[in-house]
Amino acid sequence: MIEVQGVTKRYGDHTAIERVTFSVAKGEVLAFLGPNGAGKTSTMRILACYMPATEGTARVAGFDCFEQPLEVKRRIGYLPENPPLYQELTVTEYLTFVGRIKGMNAGELRSGLARVLERLALGSVRRRLIANLSRGYQQRVGLAQALLNDPPVLILDEPTLGLDPKQIIEIRELIKSLAGSHTVILSTHILPEATAVCQRVVIIHAGRIVAEDTPEQLSSRLRRSEKISVVVKTPPPDLADRFRALPGVLNVFASTETGGFLLECDLGRDLREELARFVVGNGWGLLELKTVSMTLEDVFLLLTQHEEGMEPREDGAEEARQETAPTQEPSST
């Protein structure tokens, strides 16, 4: 339903997204996940025909976003990052206006209006000026606008932004209920959101797609090894190498100032007992020993945080260190 082929978008000489390729099948809900400035909004704007791509092609429902924008626009509901609201209008006036410029006739408009007011719980505020609504209600009016004519494709840029927890759950339920009959692409930088509502996640970072899979597959695919965090009170300077020499240890990340180590071990092998014996036997003082499980959150951080000149794996170590840091005093040499 949505096909993005090698799309690049440059603002002047700043490249916002580079050769992005992905597709969304009919009835699928796809999350576009990435940190701030990753290029989510840029991609969605191209799909919604708000701006053309610098290179590459984007197609929605078989129509090219650049060649046949009108055909694409007829089939999409788009929620921009900032809900596009006219502050001087009431909710009903606003939605009526949107329905009319979407070409709905009076009957369609009436039923569409009743449906979105009900589904987004806007009935109580429908006569109020949008300017006087709270941020969360404004977001819901924005969503109502996108859903008004029940389009087959929905492009939602951070749909739950500014909502309270109860509303977040309700909107997620709403999006889930759209799956099957609608094709949905939504952007978010909140990971649980992606896992809660989507069948597939595309992780974008610095304008490039770094991973694409189902939420479960993503976390398991990246967990190629068990990770154990060890904190030692008085580590010898060569402890990292000594750990590495142990059978079953694949890789060691050390942090000398905290005495923390992150060990990558063979999958399916629990080395904790051996490690404990090793450290205690040598009298270095074992402060902490635990397995570190990688949540999807860690995977996401791992994939998207290697910008500051760090290797992705060191970030894992960084994470583990932060977790254990409060439990021990510095013991740097």
Binding site: R45, L70, I76, N82, P84, I101, K102, Q145
Partner: peptide
């Protein structure tokens, strides 16, 4: 300024 232009440009109106 208020980004409502984005709505107009993504609705099926010329």
């Amino acid at each position: 300024k208020l980004r409502t232009f984005e709505l107009l440009m993504t609705c099926p109106i010329r």
